[in-house]
Structures are given as structure tokens and as C-alpha cells.
Design a protein around this nucleic acid. Structure first.
Lengths: 330, 330
DNA sequence: CACGTTGTTGTAAACGATTACAATAGCTGA
DNA sequence: TCAGCTATTGTAATCGTTTACAACAACGTG
């Protein structure tokens, strides 16, 4: 930096100011500094910067799993948005467990991140982030419901559930079941609540899914699906917490001889890339992962300057394809 | 840190040494320092550390896309391995374009990463990493073939191609086609070469796939698949560069009335979570993403201490399911 | 015309660790 | 017993920025 200062004929303080607060330096000087920087290929040392300014320009991202396409999209979008704002992204894949999440949060805090993004699952326990935690706002994205974090960025799964419920009820379905995914994704509860509300309004009954919170191997599922057939009240529609589960149910129905959508309608959640390619193509809820990611970054950046932005609640669209239809005539 | 030093009754230099090079400090002192650290919840300031030691304990990861399940697995595994070694992971999602990759690499270099992991695609151009690049070794994982990076960590797609070729030839297939994915994944070329070698040995002919390097909407595919039927030499087996493409071909075959596996065998690549749930379940190549990630980290850490580890070339397993079988009797 | 204001720039003191070097203590062997 | 080592600890310089403060200039105003 001293070289740059010499080349531009100014002091190092002016170089620093020209780079960080150009508005406080006269235009010609800024220009001379800019030129010198270019000429000498000067790149500021981030460590020194962080040390004296107390700003690392780093944010941490705790992500439950990269397998979930929604979180993957969200992460990609968030990373891009943060890069545009000059922030680097430190990631940790937590797997969702509380101890792992807390440990990761602590590591992030130890690295002096200026913000924490939690993608999916539960946020780290208060206090798990060490002494410096107050400085770093936390935004929870697509997390478990009821998490007490102040800044949240979610999809309105309750509303989505109602949308799906209306859609199915409108097609004539009166008996339905909800199938949770293996990973307790936090989407299940509000989704189910919305479904109950929509179906309840017309007096349609929920059938308890074979094993809530359970994503079974296909062989097992087959037996379960056959169980349903023998029940007095068999669902004609299955709403799944994620597309992979929906695909599994598709397969289970085929194995059990239940035609989809003739005998059973199946609705997924997420609109994963493979959803449109399933046979029959999955009717599914399109979750705007990228928007979610950008929105979370917006909230985080707003929180840094004390501007309390309203928690986001995004809507999603139901993509109707071939796996849903009218119930059998009975 | 001065507080810790005072509490332990030593100098700050000793505190530093006790934490970084405990072997140079007597046991009782190390213990006293450890206690004081615990008591005062002291966490070293990473910026100051980096500034004076010239070690950021950060590595950058450039990932083409998080949609690819293999890269997702690799990233998760690499992150964990790096965390165990005390390194933080800075990620950037590049999308694969050369300018974007170079820009991301420059940002990483500007943050003084001590190593760069490139997941998929082409490595950044030499020199794109700025003046400090010499210090940071680069490992390319599952990248495009022929990339000149010295440190590579790859799957032996050539061998995998041969394996698939043998498998199909052994089942009796004599006419086959390769379908590249939309994203030029770098897996295509060696995979295809392996297939050619295996099939060539028995004189089986490759049929040019409808549109190489093209992952078409299903409607288009349908027409293309019908094209094949009318051809003099129609393939009886389709090998796809990724599972999503394989799923698309499955659907195209169904639409065109080609029974799978009766009339057409289909092999995917990746063993994505949905592969086993497709109907029929996909025969596919299982790529050890997590192993790949860990291996890349091993190479990187070895390179840091000048220990030149041999470039890795992992094998993968063919998972035979229902989408492949014998060709039609003719 | 003198004086207070405002706006720029330079000087130098942080920021919080690591580590070269000096100092001291504890050994070994003659 | 003492010189000469070695092993351990302390002192202080250093890393490369930012920024509080001082110094100064230009300006408008009474």
C-alpha cells in the first residue's frame, strides 16, 4: 500500500480512504489512486483490513443438506447476491443435528462472520455462537416452524397446503393422506395444517399415512400401500413432503396395482428437476429456492444497517402435471 | 489475549505458543494457559492471526453447480474433512463459464485462500488468480478431461465406460448410442471413449445419438426417438451422461412405444437418489462423490506440505437395476 | 478584513495476534 | 566448580490496514 501511496503521490491514509470512502476524497485524487492501484496490481490484504476495521466481509451459511434441490438453489442464489455485495460465503453442511449445528455456528462465530444464514432445519441455540454473536444477525431460511429466530425467510407452506387442498377437493377428492419425508424438513407441519384446513372446510377426511415421517424402501411401501386398499376409508390422493417421496409413492402404487392418477392422485413438493420426467409427470409445488436465497440475503444486509425488514413469506405455485386427476367414480 | 496471559501468569508470547506450538512449552504452562483460555472464553482473532502468521486457514471451493448430486456430496464431504483439519470453506457457484470461474478464482485469491478446490468444469486460467496464486495449490475434482491442472482427483470414466460397454455387450447388445447431458459435464468424453473401446472390441456399432450434447424437452425427444426406429441401424441400448438424461430417455421411449428394457436398455450415470425410484429402476453408474471430496482434500493438504501425492483415479460401480436387459430377439 | 466553518489531507496510533531475538535457568561433562 | 549447551520464557518488532486527530486551506459572513 505504501507503494501505491508513493505512486499516487499521496499518503497511505488517502489511499485507504480513496478505496473505502471515495466520497470523502477529491475526485482527481481518487482517480490517481485508482490508477496507481491498477498499475501495481495492488490487492488489499483482507486480514489487515479485518483487523483494523473489525469487518471481515464474511457471512456464514449453515445448510442442512445439499441434496435438497431447494436449498441448493437457495445457496447458489445467496452466494451470488452476497458476492455482489462484497461478501464471501463460508459454508458448513450440518446434516441438521442440533449439536452439529451448534458446533458449526461456533466455528463461524470464531471466524468473525458478520452474519449467519441458516438454510433449513433449526437455528443454532442462542449462546452457541460465543461472545461475539451479538454482532452477527441470523436469518433462518426455510427452517423448522416455530424456531424463535427473529429474522426468517420462509415459504408460506400453510397457504401452499391450502392451495393443494383446494385443488384436490375441487377435483372431487374426499379422502386424502399426507406422507412426510424421511428428513423432517419442517415443511411437513404447515403443509399438513393447510391441507387439513382446506379439506376440513368441506368435511373431507384425512387418512393417516402408513408411517408418518418415514420414507420407506419400496418393498415395504408396497405392503403398506396394499394395507390401504383393505381399509374402510382409502385415500384417493397422496400429498408428499418432497418429490423423492412422491416418486416412491408413485412406485409403490404401481407395485400395488393402484393406477395413478386413475385410482390415486399424487402431489409432490419442490418441483425437483426429475419431477417433470417422472411417469406420470408429477404434479408438485414449485418452491422458489433462488428467490428464497436472495430474499434471505436482503434481510441479512438490511439487518446489518439496523433497517428491520419485514420477515418474508413467499408464495409458491402448484404445477399441475399428470400424477393428479379426479378420484375414481367409486 | 493479554487477559489470558495475566490469568495464566505468563507472557502473551507463551500464550500464543501454548496454543499454536504446544510442544515448545512445558506441560504445566500449557495446562495453565488452557485453563485460562477456558475460563475467559478466549477465542483468538482470526484476522490478527492471519495478519501475522500469513495463514488464513481458508480454502476456496469453486463449484460448477449444486444441482449435480455428485458435486453436492463431494462438497459436503470436503467441507467436513477440511473442518477437521481446521480449515474454513469459502464457496462460489460458478455455473461453469470460464469468465465466471476466473472472476471467482480472483475473489478467492484476494481473500488469501490457502488452497483452491475446483469441483467440476474447467479450472481457472493460469494467472487469473493474481499475484498471490503461487501460495495456493489447486486441486481439480471431477473436472473436464485434459485440463492442465497438476493436481487432479477424478473418477476413471474411461474404465467406467468400458465396464458399461462390457456389461451391455455381454447381455447381447450390438448397437448402442451415447446421450450427452445438456451440461457438458466432462464425463461424456471419457465415458464414450470407454464405451467405444469395449464395444469396438466385439465389432459393435455406435449409433449417433439424436443430438449429442443436448438434453431435450420430452416432446422433442419423442420425435427423435421415433427417428431412431425408422433408421436402418437402431440402438438397443442407450448410455446417458447423467441420470436426469436417462430419465428423460426413459420417458421418450415410453412415449415412442419402445419398451424398456424389452426393446431398449437404458443406463444412467451418477446414481442420483431418484434413480432407484424410476420406473423401471435405473441401471446406473454409482459415482463416489463423498470419496472424491475427501480425496481432493487429502491431495490439497498434502500439496501444502510439499508432499506430492499421486493424482487419484477412483473406480465406480455399475448398479444394475431394471432399466437394462437383453436386446430384443430381433 | 478578520474569523469561524467546512472540507481535505497527512501523521501516527491502534487492531491482536506471531515470532525473531535476548535473557535466563537448568544440565552435562571435564 | 565452572564453562558451554540446550530448553524455556519474556520483550518487543512486525504484519497491512483503518481511522482519530491535527493541520491546513478555502470559503462565506459579519
Amino acid at each position: 500500500m505504501v507503494d501505491v501511496a508513493a505512486a499516487a503521490g499521496v499518503s497511505t491514509a488517502t489511499v485507504s480512504r480513496a478505496l473505502v470512502h471515495p466520497e470523502g476524497v477529491t475526485a482527481p485524487l481518487v482517480e490517481r489512486v485508482r490508477l496507481a492501484v491498477e498499475q501495481l496490481h495492488y490487492v488489499p490484504n483482507p486480514a489487515a483490513r479485518a483487523l483494523s476495521s473489525l469487518h471481515t466481509r464474511l457471512v456464514g451459511v449453515l445448510v442442512v443438506s445439499l441434496t435438497d434441490p431447494v436449498l441448493g438453489d437457495a445457496l447458489a442464489a445467496a452466494q451470488q447476491a452476497l458476492a455482489e455485495a462484497g461478501f464471501g460465503v463460508l459454508v458448513a453442511v450440518t446434516g441438521g443435528g442440533q449439536p452439529a449445528t451448534d458446533a458449526a455456528a461456533q466455528l463461524m462465530a470464531a471466524r468473525d462472520v458478520e452474519g449467519l444464514l441458516v438454510f433449513g432445519g433449526a437455528p443454532p441455540a442462542q449462546g452457541a455462537r460465543g461472545a461475539r454473536e451479538a454482532r452477527a444477525p441470523t436469518v433462518v431460511l426455510d427452517g423448522n416452524p416455530g424456531a424463535e429466530g427473529p429474522l426468517r425467510c420462509d415459504v408460506d407452506y400453510r397457504l401452499a397446503g391450502e392451495t393443494i387442498g383446494h385443488f384436490l377437493a375441487g377435483r372431487g377428492h374426499r379422502a386424502w393422506a399426507f406422507v412426510a419425508g424421511a428428513e423432517a424438513s419442517g415443511r411437513s407441519a404447515p403443509l399438513r395444517a393447510g391441507l387439513r384446513a382446506a379439506f376440513g372446510r368441506i368435511g373431507a377426511a384425512e387418512v393417516t399415512a402408513p408411517a408418518p415421517g418415514f420414507r420407506p424402501p419400496v418393498a415395504v411401501l408396497r405392503g403398506r400401500a396394499e394395507d390401504w386398499i383393505r381399509r374402510p376409508l382409502t385415500p384417493t390422493a397422496l400429498v408428499c413432503a418432497d418429490d423423492l417421496t412422491a416418486l416412491a409413492m408413485l412406485k409403490a402404487c404401481a407395485a400395488a396395482g393402484l393406477a395413478v392418477p386413475g385410482r390415486m392422485s399424487i402431489v409432490g413438493c419442490g418441483d425437483a428437476p426429475f419431477a417433470a420426467l417422472a411417469m406420470p409427470a408429477l404434479t408438485t409445488l414449485r418452491i422458489p429456492g433462488a428467490t428464497l436465497g436472495r430474499e434471505a440475503v436482503r434481510l441479512l444486509l438490511a439487518a446489518r444497517v439496523q433497517a428491520p425488514a419485514v420477515p418474508t413469506l413467499l408464495r409458491c405455485k402448484l404445477v399441475v402435471r399428470q400424477s393428479s386427476g379426479a378420484p375414481p367414480p367409486d
